[in-house]
Amino acid sequence: MSVKHLKTLGWYLFLTGIGYVFLFPLLFMLVSSLKPEQAIFADLYSIRAILPVGELSLDNYRQVFEKSNVSLYFWNSLFITVGTVIMGLFVNSLLAFTLSRMSWRGQKLVLAVVIALMIIPLEAIVVPLLLLASKLPSIGWEGGMLVLKSSWLNTLHVQMLPFVANSFFIFLFYQFFRDIPKDFDEAAELDGATPFQIYRHIIVPMSGPVFATVAILHFLLMWNQYIWPIMAVQGEDARPLMPGIQIFFGRQSSWGEIMAYASLVTLPVLAVFLMFQKKFVTSLAGAGIKG
């Protein structure tokens, strides 16, 4: 075997090792979710811990659905996530469009503010945000009637609206749009298109990769929301999946059931990622934010 082959083999071994480290928790979760409690502990110290062997069943999943209101949480999470992502794609890309392709007074200041906002974490603003949400009135259904509520707390929209606009996503769109030649806008302008028509008919169709990237990142961000729903939602009605797992964990549950719950939470994210993986990777390379 030549040195070149040895090098390649070495690389493969190294990468397989790394892959194993990253895959281990995921495999362990999925496999354990199918095993009874004793089997999980019996297999814990052998390779069987990550192999789907022994007595396998969907009992744990059944238990999760029986013991917890997981389907309601799931629909809540899905509604919050998909709704926010759709609104976010529109709002963030539109602002990025005006920042990158139009000129208006105060443009540079707004761009600077957007960039500056990227460094402020949610934890820093979560308390004032909670105070604000508790004071904002809203209209909602209660007992089949339309009622005026005195606060936004315990609603679905309190989990969506504060997260629609996101400075990082605006910046991603901005970076991508900035690299599209201005000739397209000018050609469309001569063709009689308004700025919004240029956005709608020219820029959006040309920006598939960045829309895919932002959609995935925003999906993950929203799907994994934890601190904010715990603070802003107390009741069952508007609770999403993530705080649900904490409550489920707090009750008397077996590890198999917890793993089943965790698998239910993880699978949609994995599915979304695999679906958009190719576009996602191209776009990350294109956006110049490798790693």
Partner: peptide, 16 residues
């Protein structure tokens, strides 16, 4: 621009 009755061919063609 769109109301001037002019049409332009760009150096880069600018085809969508």
């Amino acid at each position: 621009a769109s109301k001037r009755g002019v049409a332009m061919v760009f150096q880069s063609y600018a085809l969508y």
